[in-house]
C-alpha cells in the first residue's frame, strides 16, 4: 500500500503511486474493534467527507474536440464509467464538481472555459484530458491556448491524442486517490 502517515497530524495519507486507485481503509485499532463488536463503526468526519467526494464525482460536460468522443466512449457501453461513480455528466456547471477538459482550448474558448469553471461550486477538480488540453499538443499556433493550466488549475494531466477510455478511467481513479488524500480543511475554499 502507498499508505504513509502525515508527521504533523498523524493522519494517514495515501500516495498516488503504484497502487493508485486503492481506496484508503480506516486504520483499525483496539477501540474500533471494540466498537465494531457492539455493531458500531467509527471513523472521522474528514474521512466520511472524503469518501463522499471521491465516490461520486459529477463531471461537467465539457467536451471540446476529439477527446470528447473518447469521453463519450468512456461513458458508453463498453467502458462504463459508472462503475467508478463518475457517470453523472451534468450540463450545468452548478451541479458539477469535476471538469474534464476534453480537447483543444482555443483563444476564443478560453474565457468561456474559465467562466464555466468559476460557476462550479467548491470543491472542484479539473482533469486535463489529452495532449492539447495539457500542453497545446501538436497545435503550437496562434489559435490554441498552450495548455489549459494557463486558464484553470489542473489536478490530473492525462496524456494521449486522444487518450484511450482506459486512460480516462485511470485519470479518474488517480483523482479519486488524490481527493482521498486531501484533508477537507486544506481543500480549496
Amino acid at each position: 500500500m502507498g499508505l504513509s502517515v502525515d508527521a504533523a497530524t498523524g493522519l494517514p495519507i495515501l500516495n498516488a503511486g503504484a497502487d493508485a486507485g486503492a481506496i484508503p481503509l480506516p486504520r483499525v485499532g483496539d477501540l474500533e474493534r471494540t466498537a465494531a463488536k457492539a455493531g458500531a463503526i467509527t471513523t472521522t468526519i474528514e474521512k466520511v467527507i472524503q469518501w463522499g467526494r471521491y465516490s461520486s464525482l459529477w463531471p461537467a460536460l465539457f467536451g471540446l474536440a476529439c477527446c470528447a468522443i473518447e469521453m463519450m466512449a468512456t461513458g458508453a457501453a463498453r467502458y462504463d464509467m459508472s462503475r467508478f461513480g463518475c457517470e453523472v455528466f451534468r450540463a450545468s456547471p452548478r451541479q458539477a464538481d469535476l471538469m474534464i477538459v476534453a480537447g483543444r482550448v482555443s483563444q476564443k474558448m478560453g474565457p468561456v472555459l474559465r467562466q464555466i469553471y468559476d460557476q462550479m461550486p467548491e470543491p472542484k477538480w479539473v482533469i486535463s484530458m489529452g495532449a492539447c488540453a495539457s500542453s497545446g499538443g501538436m497545435f503550437n499556433n496562434y489559435a490554441i491556448i498552450q495548455g489549459v493550466d494557463k486558464v484553470v488549475p489542473v489536478d490530473v494531466y492525462l496524456p494521449g491524442c486522444p487518450p484511450r477510455p482506459e486512460g480516462l478511467l485511470d485519470a479518474v481513479l488517480k483523482l479519486q486517490t488524490k481527493i482521498a488524500a486531501e484533508r477537507p480543511s486544506s481543500l480549496r475554499g
Partner: peptide
C-alpha cells in the same frame, strides 16, 4: 489576419 504570410503564427516556443 492569421493566414497572411507575414503573420507569425507559432504559439509558444518549445
Amino acid at each position: 489576419h492569421p493566414l497572411r504570410k507575414d503573420y507569425v503564427s507559432f504559439g509558444e516556443p518549445v
